[in-house]
């Protein structure tokens, strides 16, 4: 708690002279903070000024609208939450027509479109269609645990990661981020497969597969039975995986998983991330991403570190 109070004081101070800019696969971000897919909608614009973000990452976009899973889709857990939304989305044509222009109106804000599919062809089709737009980057979601086909089915086997990434790589020239699942024995193998198949960057981690049972009702809480665990409880897993992947693969990394504060974001970057996505925190505190950005600046001031580049190489081993 003492730390929090100190942090608050620092937050009020302007972050003079800090170089927060990063470059991810050739795309310049003014700071390293983005949104984690599935926690950003156009309604986020009512929570904070999204143009303050380094980049914005959308919810998964498919070829056609998906209805998602039945409810309950959400369960609370110690230090986090389970979700089984099941990639409900409006489909690529509606997204391009209704949402992309709204995001594009924010000057200097790179837009990362998260793409999903049931088959390799569907992933490639979304990638190809979005490549006709001025979207800045694509994030390939092969790690959603809440859909029966696609998603994690591709992301938990080396061949699946390689084949899906390769198919999408063939379909697009846009900078391609591959989002990795933590539900694997060796995440480094998945990272290498994505790199070998032509990924430009990696994002990790997606949610951890979990389940919650209501003891007194003696029922599984989520209609889908299982869901993806997110929130501060998974942060150490994410830090460990970013650390491992950083030492195995040279690609830029967007680190995510339970980032709740500026110090958590700094931890991700020290572990080897080039940028940081905020997800569950933004569902609990509506302005969390910009708050965490301010806290990260305060944290860097406190550490005596002047740039994200410097922070990334500051881990003492």
């Amino acid at each position: 708690m003492g730390n929090d109070a100190e942090m608050k004081k620092n937050t009020d101070r302007p972050a003079a002279g800090l170089d927060m800019g990063v470059e991810i696969a050739g795309v310049k971000w003014k700071n390293p903070i983005t949104t984690a897919s599935g926690t950003f909608t156009l309604r986020t614009m009512r929570c904070y000024e999204i143009s303050r973000l380094g980049a914005v990452t959308t919810k998964g976009i498919a070829t056609v609208p998906w209805a998602g899973n039945p409810t309950p889709r959400i369960a609370e857990t110690y230090g986090g939450m389970l979700n089984a939304v099941g990639l409900q989305n409006i489909g690529m044509e509606a997204w391009i027509r209704d949402e992309l222009p709204v995001l594009r109106a924010h000057e200097g804000l790179p837009v990362i479109a998260n793409i999903v599919g049931r088959t390799t062809d569907e992933y490639a089709e979304v990638a190809a269609r979005l490549s006709e737009t001025d979207v800045d980057m694509l994030e390939l979601n092969i790690s959603c645990p809440n859909v029966k086909e696609g998603g994690i089915a591709f992301g938990t086997a080396v061949e699946g990661v390689f084949d899906t990434t390769a198919a999408v790589r063939k379909a697009t020239r846009k900078p391609l981020i591959v989002k990795l699942s933590p539900n694997v024995t060796r995440i480094v193998d998945m990272a290498k497969a994505a790199a070998d198949a032509g990924a430009d960057a990696l994002s990790l981690i997606n949610t951890l597969l979990g389940m919650k049972i209501d003891v007194y009702r003696r029922r599984v809480v989520l209609a889908n039975k299982t869901g993806g665990l997110s929130g501060p409880g998974i942060h150490p897993v994410a830090v460990r995986m970013v650390y491992e992947v950083r030492r195995a693969v040279g690609l830029p990394i967007i680190g995510m998983g339970g980032v709740m504060s500026g110090e958590d974001a700094a931890e991700m970057i020290l572990a080897g991330a080039d940028a940081v996505a905020v997800g569950t925190a933004a569902l609990i505190r509506p302005d969390a991403p910009v708050r965490i950005l301010e806290e990260l600046e305060a944290c860097m001031n406190k550490m005596g570190i002047a740039s994200i580049r410097e922070l990334k190489s500051a881990l003492i081993e």
């Binding site: 599935g38 926690t39 309604r43 998602g68 979700n83």
Partner: peptide, 16 residues
């Protein structure tokens, strides 16, 4: 009424 995640339109948890 529906079980909500964020309760302000960002998580797609509480659909009807």
């Amino acid at each position: 009424e529906e079980r909500m995640g964020c309760g302000f339109g960002c998580c797609a948890g509480c659909v009807t």
